[in-house]
Amino acid sequence: MAFNVKALPKKNYIMPGNAACPGCPENIGLKFVSMALGEKATLVVPAGCTSVIQGLWPRQGTSMPVLNIVFAAAASAASGLSRALRIRGKDDIVVVWAGDGGTADIGLQALSGAAERGEDFIYICVDNEAYMNTGIQRSSLTPHGAWTTTTHRGNPGRKKPLPQIVAAHRVPYVATASIGYPWDFISKLKKAASIKGFKYIHLHAPCPVGWRFDPGLTVKIAQLAVETGAWILYEYENGKLRLNPPSNKLVDPSKRKPLEEYIKLQGRFRHLTDKDLEELKKEIEENWREITAILRAQGDL
């Protein structure tokens, strides 16, 4: 898909001088949401870093309307908001902007309920792989072996396959995206906005504070995660799976960059032994095997 960066809207929806840390991926992601949806977006934000980024009265850090809501109720609040807007004849797009803890742990039942009812809104899970706002505690989306303040010797569990869990609800649109690939994310948001029903986008967002890397490398690490195959860009449209570039060229493991390039830049993986690294590689290989199995069953590979 052709992507013209100069044709993107020039209006600022994310205000300079907000409360985000330097190099914050959530700010970058919110910026792309505003570029894709503009005036039409209404944010529903459960507790998380974005509640802080909005800033304190009398100034607001983002110029999109925001409904702040408790962790467990993001999807249910968005359901009500979206229904009320439709009854009033408005076509505004309700966007839930939730962190990985607010989606995979605390907000999962509301998310599942809204998906099952087929509510009309976009749910974006900003996956920075731990509870960053409260001080880097492990969440169920933390990858294997990663250091957090509650897993000093590395996370013993493994990452919950959340996009597949939502896709199993048979919703019209499920996609994964990365802040390193704005053209992919923006086109997915525009596609999601044009579909009626429950849409889910899982956004990979490397956090410099929690992952222990230099804030200037946020975008580079997000791109490396995709190039090494640790994060896969794909979309389920009406149940049909499709890999998106650049992940569609990485089905063959020899085309991927070595995983070490991605791991070595992050302080949270500093303690990893060779055995842990093998475990992590095995997990990534399993993810790819699942994806390719579905593609083969569809006859696309």
Partner: peptide, 28 residues
């Protein structure tokens, strides 16, 4: 901006403006 006068503000309304956290250039 924090001075609130009767009749000036009916409710505390936030407005999108640069610098909700002050001059963040000093963090650099």
């Amino acid at each position: 901006v924090l001075v609130v006068e009767p009749g000036d503000h009916f409710y505390p309304l936030s407005v999108a403006a640069p610098g909700s956290m002050g001059r963040t250039g000093s963090w650099r």
